[in-house]
C-alpha cells in the first residue's frame, strides 16, 4: 500500500468548501509538489494531512509503517516566531517530542539525533545562537533540522523558500533534493512552477476548478502545464538577460 492516500477529500472552513474531490496517493520516496495560486487551499491541505484539521468529506489513510505523528513539518513562517527568545538548539531538539511520551527530558539518543541533523544541514555552528537573530535562510534550515528530528520518512514543506533570495533558494531546493535521494518522501507546497518541474517527480495542481494529479511528464502535456512551461521558459530568458 502507498504511504499516504487521499480518497475523495473535500476541505473547507465552516461549511465553505475550498477544495472538492481530491484524489491522490504518495509512495515512499516520492517527491510531490503541490502547486496553485495563493488562497487555493494548499496550506489547508497540508494542515489536514498533519491532522490539525479534519477534512469535510473523504478520508486520508496512512501506510502501515507511517504514524501520523511521525511526519516532519516545515510550516509557512508566522510572525510570532520572529522575536521569540529560543536558541537554535532548543528549537531543533523540540522536533523529538513525538517520541518522548511522558518523559520530561530528552534522551541521549534524541540529543545525538539533533546534533546529526544540524551537521547534515550545516548549522552546527549556530547551536547556541538565538533563532531570531539568524537570517531567513538559516532559520529555514533550523526548522528543517527540527522536522528531520520528527521523521525519517516523510517531510511536509509549506513554501520552504518564500522570502529567501535566489541563491539561498537554490541551496534550499538542493538540500531538499538530497534528503529525497536519501529516501525521505517529500511533499512540498510552492507556487514556483520552475522549481516544481525541476525537482519534483509528481505534481498536484490545485485551482478553484480543475485539479490535476499525476507524474511530472503527464503534467507538462496538459493545457495548464503547457501554459506554465511557457511561463517558465520566458522567465528563464528573462533571467539570462538579467545576468548579462
Amino acid at each position: 500500500m502507498s504511504q499516504l492516500k487521499c480518497s475523495d477529500v473535500s476541505l473547507g472552513y465552516e461549511g465553505r468548501t475550498i477544495i472538492k474531490h481530491l484524489n491522490f496517493e504518495v509512495n515512499a520516496g516520492d517527491y510531490l509538489c503541490i502547486v496553485g495560486e495563493n488562497g487555493t487551499g494548499k496550506s489547508t491541505l497540508i494542515k489536514t494531512l498533519l491532522g490539525l484539521r479534519q477534512p469535510l468529506e473523504g478520508n486520508i489513510e496512512f501506510g502501515e509503517e507511517l504514524k501520523p505523528t511521525e511526519i516532519g513539518y516545515l510550516p509557512q513562517q508566522t510572525m510570532v516566531q520572529r522575536d521569540f527568545p529560543a536558541s537554535v538548539w532548543e528549537v531543533v531538539l523540540s522536533g523529538n517530542l513525538n517520541k518522548s511520551g511522558f518523559r520530561p527530558f530528552y534522551s541521549k539518543e534524541e540529543k545525538e539525533r539533533a546534533e546529526a541533523n544540524m551537521c547534515k544541514l550545516g548549522i552546527e555552528d549556530f547551536k547556541k545562537r538565538c533563532y531570531r537573530d539568524l537570517s531567513g535562510g538559516q532559520q529555514q534550515r533550523v526548522l528543517l533540522a527540527r522536522a528531520l528530528c520528527a521523521t525519517g520518512k516523510m517531510l511536509l514543506l509549506d513554501e520552504p523558500v518564500a522570502g529567501l533570495d535566489p541563491k539561498i533558494t537554490v541551496e534550499m531546493y538542493e538540500l531538499i533534493q538530497k534528503l529525497n535521494e536519501e529516501g525521505i518522501t517529500i511533499i512540498m507546497v510552492s507556487h514556483d512552477m520552475a522549481a516544481a518541474c525541476n525537482y519534483a517527480d509528481h505534481i498536484l495542481h490545485i485551482a478553484h476548478k480543475p485539479l490535476f494529479f499525476g507524474t511530472k511528464e503527464e503534467y507538462l502535456k496538459t493545457e495548464t502545464g503547457k501554459a506554465f512551461t511557457e511561463l517558465v521558459k520566458m522567465e528563464a530568458l528573462g533571467d539570462d538577460e538579467d545576468d548579462r
Binding site: L50, L52, P68, I71, P75, V91, L97, F105
Partner: peptide, 23 residues
Amino acid sequence: FTFFYHKIFAVTFDENFAKATGI
C-alpha cells in the same frame, strides 16, 4: 513547569508543529 517544560516550550514556540507531532 519542571515536568512539562519541553512541551510548554514547543506549544509556545510553534503550536501547529507541536500538534502535528502529537502534543
